[in-house]
């Protein structure tokens, strides 16, 4: 049996987790509000990649649906906050 894929999965998980850590530092430290929204955008993409990598590791198809939902809701949240920064309201009359 080959052990290449499990090690690659561990490596990718480690990389993406460190990436999430960097984004969290920027989220907490960011001098301006748009820095924090940008960090949140990075955070949800990385979270989606973690779930996808776990799905590869466990060979299960259920993780795909979770990743799709994270992508959907993360986009809605990040866009709503960016729009709020831009105009001061999310849904304009």
């Amino acid at each position: 049996m080959n052990h290449v894929l499990p090690w690659a999965v561990y490596f990718a998980l480690m990389c993406v987790s460190v990436a999430m850590g960097c984004a969290t530092i920027r989220l907490l430290r960011g001098p301006q509000a748009q820095d924090r929204v940008l960090a949140l955008d990075t955070l949800y993409i990385s979270g989606m990649l973690v779930v996808l990598t776990l799905g590869i590791g466990f060979g299960s198809g259920i993780y795909f649906d979770i990743a799709l939902l994270i992508a959907l809701f993360g986009f809605v949240g990040a866009t709503a906050m960016a729009k709020f920064l831009l105009r001061g309201e999310v849904i304009e009359p």
């Binding site: 490596f11 990718a12 998980l13 480690m14 990389c15 993406v16 460190v18 990436a19 999430m20 960097c22 984004a23 530092i25 920027r26 940008l38 960090a39 990075t42 993409i45 990385s46 990649l49 990598t53």
Partner: peptide, 11 residues
């Protein structure tokens, strides 16, 4: 994984 890490490091 490396690309995501480098991109996030840029933050």
């Amino acid at each position: 994984g490396l690309l995501t890490l480098v991109g996030s490091l840029g933050l």
